[in-house]
Amino acid sequence: MVKTITSVGLPIDEILEIKKNRIMPDSPSGDMKRISIVTGIHGDELEGQYVCFGLQQRIMQEKENLSGIVDVYPAMNPLGIDSVTRGIPAFDLDMNRLFPGNKDGNMTEYLAAGIIEDVSGSDCVIDIHASNIYLTEIPQIRINELHEDRLVPLAMEANVDFIWVHGASTVLESTFAYSLNSTGTPVLVVEMGVGMRITKDYGNQLIDGIFNLMQKMGIWKGNTKEVKKPVISRNPDDVIYLNASTGGLFIPAARHGAKLKKGSLIGRITDPLRGEVLDEVKAPADGMLFTIREYPVVDEGSLMGRILKKEACGYE
């Protein structure tokens, strides 16, 4: 059942509505668990759209196996999605810096508060992001170390390749995930793929993971696929950041997800005006290239990739 969870009138003959679809078993019981699938906080990240679609398709094909509540929130920032805008259009605000919002606050804070109110109390929330338009990510879950104990066991069931437990940061306290995690509703933040595109393989991988998680939670009685055993990184030194030494056009030479040897070529920063190579980007250590730049133009400092060191990956 599609329901508007919060809305506000716009100046010229339009109402901004944030909607969810609730899927219930045909014969609901009184003590069902609830999983919430949330995406579209950033309007330029579309990987979660495919997951929302695909998940519901599969549930409806085997509806008899549903034994809990599935809430699907595909568009937390509908104006952003419909205008190819990452933030909230007109305000140029990152929606994921507005939570927990404020019912008495401005329009954006009011909407954020309505979202938190509706999602709160879920037994598990999957907040699906797609990196941004610049970088491609392997399917991964990012967890604030403050909530590690509760979230890592859930993340292990979600069929991702990588779980990245990162340090606490004051700036991140205004995210959707932090706001809910700090008040007792567990939220797994998924990053996968790239902005403005859909990577079906990653979407299907996560859908399999969500079914597995639903089964473990008692929301799904049907068969599920065996899930991947993810690499878990808790040490900040496990990850190497590759930032551009100069501005130019980055042309990748390594495959996303490749297991690299120290010194192997990842890409080149080039100067198309003069036809020159400005820098060769090489792996500073053995490891897996879990992030790779998708958008070719780089400034000095732009992130071109991230490597998870071999010893953290645990491969031979």
Binding site: V8, G9, L10, P11, I12, A90, G105, M107, E109
Partner: peptide, 8 residues
């Protein structure tokens, strides 16, 4: 010239 609802 335009304003949104819930705006200070």
């Amino acid at each position: 010239p335009l304003t949104y609802a819930n705006t200070a």
